[in-house]
Amino acid sequence: MANEITDRNNLMRNWFNNDSWMNNFPSIFDANFPESSYLKTDIKETDKDYQLKVDLPAVDKKNLDITYNNDILTIRGHRDSFDDHNDKNGDMIMSERSSGRFSRQYNLPEVDPDNVKATYDNGVLQLTLPKLKKDVDSGHHIQIS
């Protein structure tokens, strides 16, 4: 047990003395605010639609809520807690997995909300948000009087 404690202390000492400590700062910050590290997203825009891929590992699709209102797509949900986070024997030396509620909003203007398609497979949410068809203004002739 003493060697385990020494190993943990050395791990922490090396981490704090590492020259790249400041490079790790964002990940430290994310660990305290899991919602900022959730919902890693790719967004592609075409002439016809927006296409999103959102990583949501270990989230059950029944725990997701997706809305579109006033040009804002909102994805909300929660991930249940992990049973193995309870460390009765003191064996856990690091834990980065998070649980709880999350939410993220995306500004995607002029979407046809009636035709949005969503699929969820293997922890990846895919959304296709078709753009509203714009009426082409053919122009108007104005008479000068």
Rank of each mutant, 00 (worst) to 15 (best):
M1G: 10
M1R: 08
A2R: 13
N3G: 10
N3F: 08
E4Y: 12
E4I: 02
T6A: 12
D7N: 11
R8V: 06
R8F: 13
R8E: 02
R8K: 12
L11Y: 14
L11Q: 14
R13E: 11
N14A: 07
N17A: 10
D19W: 10
S20N: 13
S20M: 10
M22S: 13
N23S: 11
N24F: 06
N24K: 08
F25M: 07
F25N: 10
P26I: 08
F29Y: 12
D30T: 07
F33L: 13
F33I: 15
S36D: 10
S37R: 03
S37L: 04
T41P: 00
D42F: 11
D42E: 13
I43F: 03
E45K: 13
E45N: 12
E45V: 15
T46S: 14
T46F: 11
D47S: 03
D47E: 15
K48V: 10
K48W: 02
K48A: 05
D49G: 05
Y50W: 09
Y50C: 01
L52H: 02
K53P: 06
K53S: 14
D55N: 10
D55P: 03
L56T: 00
A58D: 15
D60N: 12
K62S: 13
K62Y: 08
N63M: 03
N63G: 04
I66Y: 01
I66E: 04
I66S: 01
T67C: 03
Y68S: 01
Y68C: 02
N69W: 04
N69R: 07
N70M: 10
N70A: 08
I72P: 00
G77A: 06
H78W: 07
R79L: 07
R79P: 07
F82Q: 14
F82C: 05
F82R: 14
F82A: 11
D83C: 06
D84I: 09
D84K: 12
H85M: 15
N86A: 12
N86T: 10
D87W: 15
D87C: 05
G90A: 06
M92L: 15
M92N: 09
S95Q: 14
E96F: 09
S98C: 10
G100F: 09
R101V: 15
R101Y: 14
S103K: 14
S103D: 09
R104F: 02
R104S: 05
R104Q: 07
Q105H: 10
Q105T: 06
L108P: 00
E110F: 12
V111Y: 01
V111R: 02
D112C: 05
P113H: 01
P113K: 01
P113N: 00
V116P: 04
K117T: 03
A118V: 05
T119N: 05
T119W: 01
D121T: 11
N122I: 04
V124W: 03
L125Q: 00
L125H: 00
L127V: 02
L132C: 11
L132H: 05
D135W: 06
D137M: 10
S138T: 15
G139E: 02
G139S: 03
S145H: 14
